[in-house]
Design a protein around this nucleic acid. Structure first.
Lengths: 133, 133
DNA sequence: AATACAATAATACAATGGTACAATAATACA
DNA sequence: TGTATTATTGTACCATTGTATTATTGTATT
């Protein structure tokens, strides 16, 4: 279940778990029917309280990606529909971006700083990989 | 945790705490993995506000000596290596952005996707904290 | 005296942990 | 097979922890 948490990050642990599971699902590393570790198992693995894992599971449950069942465990739910996959994909970018902005803000950078840096680096990237159009 | 503060000193209390903790770490009186008192515990000890202790902890955190973790506590961390210190200092907007863009690209997102998402989230943030102009 | 600024305090808040609990599964035994 | 018992699982609630924001205090400068 190779999940890594960074205790020093400003990104909450439960968010780190959610994001990594989302990506694993999108990449197909975990499939429909698979059983996830119990909240206590994963918590022991990551050295966190099991409530923290439970919170991550609940968030994924609420978005319909997994199914947590009292007394039974947690499972990957139905094969994500095309629409669900698309949404999952979008959510991955959303949370990645949110984390990025969070860190940047934490370092004291302002909106304009960020916009400029993004523009600059995206231009650099275009040299290697020009826009398709 | 024998820390002494001199309220009459012109040296700010948070600085006194930082300096004494630095020395204790250097002398090996507290070791990697050790848990420091909570900000409230030490504050009660020293008869100061816990924000003052929190400020000291934050400074030590930023210099890589300890790790303060919301909801978990504060721990002595690995003495930062040369490389770690370098990374700590280069943890600027440029490298943060580079990491972010690499991840996004790795997840299959295109330039335009990223620009849009950044714009969207920065706009969301503006509702709370409007641009200065 | 007035003002500005840094240090400290007060308060509200979000993340994580601790504990008790209810639902389900697993096991033992008749 | 059926049922009682125990273990395991996620849930709910609240305490604890550090963080963020704002107000207050003290001190220096003019």
């Amino acid at each position: 279940m190779n999940i890594q948490v960074d205790f020093r990050s400003t990104v909450p642990i439960y968010t780190q778990i959610v994001e990594q599971l989302r990506q694993m699902i999108e990449k197909g590393e975990i499939k429909v029917g698979d059983k996830l570790p119990t909240v206590r198992e994963m918590a022991a693995d990551l050295r966190v309280n099991f409530n923290t894992v439970a919170r991550a599971y609940r968030i994924l449950d609420e978005s319909g990606l997994i199914s947590t069942q009292l007394g039974r465990g947690t499972y990957i739910w139905e094969p994500p529909t095309e629409a669900a996959l698309k949404k999952l994909h979008e959510e991955n970018l959303e949370s990645l971006t949110r984390d990025y902005l969070r860190e940047a803000k934490n370092l004291g950078f302002k909106r304009q700083d960020i916009e400029n840096e993004i523009k600059t680096q995206l231009m650099d990237r275009d040299r290697e990989e020009p826009p398709v159009d």
